[in-house]
Design a protein around this nucleic acid. Structure first.
Lengths: 196, 196
DNA sequence: TATAAAACTGACTGAGCGCTCAGTCTAGTT
DNA sequence: AACTAGACTGAGCGCTCAGTCAGTTTTATA
């Protein structure tokens, strides 16, 4: 692995664990064995490095979400919602570093002045919400989900619940495992079609 | 107003808008007119100042939530849930500074090594969840809310939704106003008693 | 093997930071 | 008027940090 890649990986790890501001470039040199200058040779600034991480995050996560979304399924839409929640929670755990970065303040602050950053964030969030919307639309077609709810907005609401769970877990506020069953049940009650 | 209080207010504002690490003590001197030394005369360190803010936040918010929770209501539990969501969103808007601080990384980081900080956070979050739990328990008693759901866990789930909405608004990700109606409707579907 | 480009190095810089401290000011008491 | 305690001051200290740059090593090409 080239130094450039090593730096990116180490920076992803450090930024996600300690935050942007609390990570010194000097720590990166210790972790990577690269000299201070090498980092600035490959990335023009600390902010530039962060943008590279975001871009890498997008490239690493989106395809997996898109592949998941496009996979054929025999399930009802309502069951797909449950599965999507599982999938999201699974991804958030297996790619902890990347999701932790999305739960920090810095990217949103940067997004206000940097369109590239804003684009990355929007793409990622749209993709997240898409998998829930896809399941809901499917459910409205097959009759398992209430036809009179707004699919996109409901998808956003489901996402907001799952996103909070991830945040709770990361901040050590609540044990998400203990809530998982109730979360699924709540979403089912929220979405299921009762007119049949 | 004494300098000490002025410093606390200004620091609350700055910390909430720019974050803990990105706020320099020097900025506080400009905002308050107090000398650098004055801040450290009243608060023993930057961290100590932050703890004072948290304590002040608790004292400022909890009584209002407790008063709200203990107020008698003619409403059904299900209607109370809706009202509680409104109340929470209203509080989050009118006390924007305080809620913004709760949505930062620093307090949770500090909580891991500082019990005082941890206590403050726990007290605040418990109080938040309590108002939803109270409504749900009431609803289970009056029959408007499903008897077979776990009140505390459901309260946590409702809270997680509302909390995400506040976070979305703060990060300029989505317009919460546009989602309000759907949020309420979703919670109703999620909680309402259908066995009657 | 010679040459050039690309990758890498680490001592250095200067700005900014949290915090200190010796001393001044103010208001209340005797 | 003399004294005192608490509030307040701001220059300055020690340190950290992002970023630079002149120079060295590695790699690719001729």
């Amino acid at each position: 692995m080239k130094k450039k890649e090593v730096i990116l990986q180490a920076a992803t790890h450090l930024f996600s664990r300690k935050g942007y501001k609390d990570t010194a470039m000097g720590e990166l040199t210790k972790m990577t064995g690269a000299a201070e200058g090498t980092i600035f040779y490959h990335y023009k600034s600390k902010q530039g490095l962060f943008l590279a991480i975001l871009s890498n995050l997008k490239e690493g996560i989106l395809p997996e979400f898109e592949r998941y979304r496009n996979a054929e399924s025999e399930k009802t839409g309502l069951d797909m919602v449950e599965e999507s929640i599982s999938f999201y929670l699974y991804m958030a755990q297996s790619r902890e570093d990347l999701f932790a970065i999305l739960h920090q303040r810095y990217p949103y602050e940067l997004a206000e002045s940097n369109p590239e950053c804003r684009d990355h964030l929007e793409a990622v969030y749209n993709c997240f919400v898409d998998i829930f919307e896809n399941a809901i639309v499917t459910g409205q077609r097959d009759g398992s989900i209430a036809p009179d709810i707004a699919a996109r907005k409901s998808a956003l609401i489901v996402f907001s619940m799952v996103d909070s769970m991830v945040r709770f877990r990361m901040n050590n506020l609540y044990d998400v495992g203990a809530l998982y069953k109730d979360l699924i049940e709540s979403c089912r009650r929220m979405l299921e079609n009762r007119t049949r």
